[in-house]
Amino acid sequence: MSESNAAKDPSSRTRGKAPGILPGLLQGMVTTAKSALRPTHTAEYPHAEPTLPPRSRGVIALLEENCTSCMLCARECPDWCIYIDSHKETIPATTPGGRDRQRNVLDRFAIDFSLCMYCGICVEVCPFDALFWSPQFEYAEYDLRDLLHEKERLGGWMATVPPPPALDPAAAEPAEVTAANRPERGRP
C-alpha cells in the first residue's frame, strides 16, 4: 500500500515530504506578497539608459584612417553585407630619382545592417584594427533600405566604442609590449 502510494506521488520520492494543499496555497500568497514589496525589475527603457555589458554587439563602427581597402572583411562576410569601393593613387617620389609609390584610397565603405547578422567575423578578420564593436543600438529605421549605412555614419559610431577591457591579471603581455621588449639582435 505504502509502496504504491510512493510510486504514485513523485514528490514523495524526490523531496522527502510534500507540503499539503493549504501550506502550499499560503506559501504562494507569501511569495507573491514578498515580491510585491520588493523593488521591481522593470527598467523603463526609453527614460532609463540600459546598462549594457562592455562587449555588447550593438553596431559595427569604422575607423576610416586604419582601413587599407584590403577587402578581407567584405570577402569573409557570410552574407556579403559590406560594400567597399576604392581606387589607387600615386604618391610622387619624395627624393629625386626615387620611385613613385601607390596607395589605396577608400571611396566607399558601407554595411547593410538589414543583412548583417552580427557575427563579428569582419571585426575579427580586420588586420589593421579598422572595425570595432560599439554597444550603440538605437539606429532603427522605418524602411529596411535605410539600414544601409555609409562610412560617415559608421565613422560616427567610433565615438561610442568603449576602451578595450583590461587584461586578466594572469594574461600574457600584449604582443606590442613583447615586441618592444625583445632584445635587439646581435650583429655579426
Binding site: 507573491t32 506578497a33 515580491s35 510585491a36 520588493r38 521591481t40 525589475h41 522593470t42 523603463e44
Partner: peptide, 13 residues
C-alpha cells in the same frame, strides 16, 4: 498594478 508588482514588474506607467 498589484499583479505587476507581485511579478516584479511595474505594470502600466
Amino acid at each position: 498594478k498589484l499583479m505587476a508588482h507581485m511579478q516584479g514588474r511595474l505594470g502600466p506607467m
